[in-house]
């Protein structure tokens, strides 16, 4: 049997428990990450949805922000959903002035771009590599307003990208951890697997 992938889920605030469950359902070994020490031995990191301003504060307070920026610059696999995608975007619109970015993806992302909670919605979306649609939940979701030249758009809804990848960084504006469909988590785990072959722990 192949050894299990060790995946960290940033657990400062937000939907980390749902991501941990989805990753375990994919067969991964999961660790909740709250400190720099928690990063030891993990092969990829998921940044969940939640409140990006809260996470930003706690990333700075824990010293994780600098360590993560450094890792992502060297291709360490990361998957950000909703607020997690905001954390990864180079340009954050409608954020707070003191909000930090981990700069892993060349994106312009507008916080709450799809509106407040009353505008939150469920929608089937087409992901290019999937044979059937993916049922996506958008919760006070951020809008991707622009993507850099090296960013691959894996799915769009309306005229907006909603699932994107650049190198080993994957991000989406919706919540694959809130449905039982594991296909998007599996895309991430394949990025981790490829990275781990060339960069053993």
């Amino acid at each position: 049997m192949e050894p299990k992938l060790h995946i960290g889920v940033l657990a400062l605030q937000g939907a980390f428990a749902a991501h941990a469950q989805a990753l375990r359902d994919c067969g991964a070994e999961v660790r909740l990450v709250r400190t720099q020490e928690d990063l030891n031995g993990i092969q990829g990191l998921v940044i969940p949805g939640g409140e990006s301003t809260t996470m930003s504060n706690l990333l700075v307070a824990s010293g994780l922000s600098e360590v993560l920026k450094e890792r992502f610059q060297h291709g360490f696999p990361v998957f950000g959903t909703c607020a997690g995608m905001i954390m990864l975007a180079e340009t954050i619109l409608d954020g707070r002035a003191d909000q930090i970015s981990l700069g892993a993806l060349e994106l312009d992302v507008r916080r709450n771009g799809y509106g407040r909670q009353n505008d939150s919605f469920e929608q089937d979306i087409v992901v290019h590599s999937f044979e059937t649609p993916f049922h996506a939940l958008f919760i006070r979701a951020p809008v991707i307003e622009a993507v850099g030249s090296d960013v691959e758009v894996l799915a769009s809804w309306g005229d907006r990208p909603v699932l994107v990848r650049s190198g080993n960084a994957l991000a989406c504006s919706f919540h694959p951890e809130l449905v039982s469909d594991l296909r998007i988590h599996r895309i991430f785990l394949s990025l981790v697997e490829n990275f781990s072959v060339t960069n053993p722990r």
Binding site: Q13, G14, A15, F16, A17, N118, L178
Partner: peptide, 17 residues
């Protein structure tokens, strides 16, 4: 909009806070 999964989803986002 306004379905139970969408409502419960926001509760999930507020965890750990």
């Amino acid at each position: 909009t306004g379905s139970f999964p969408v409502k419960r989803g926001l509760a999930e986002m507020l965890k750990g806070g």
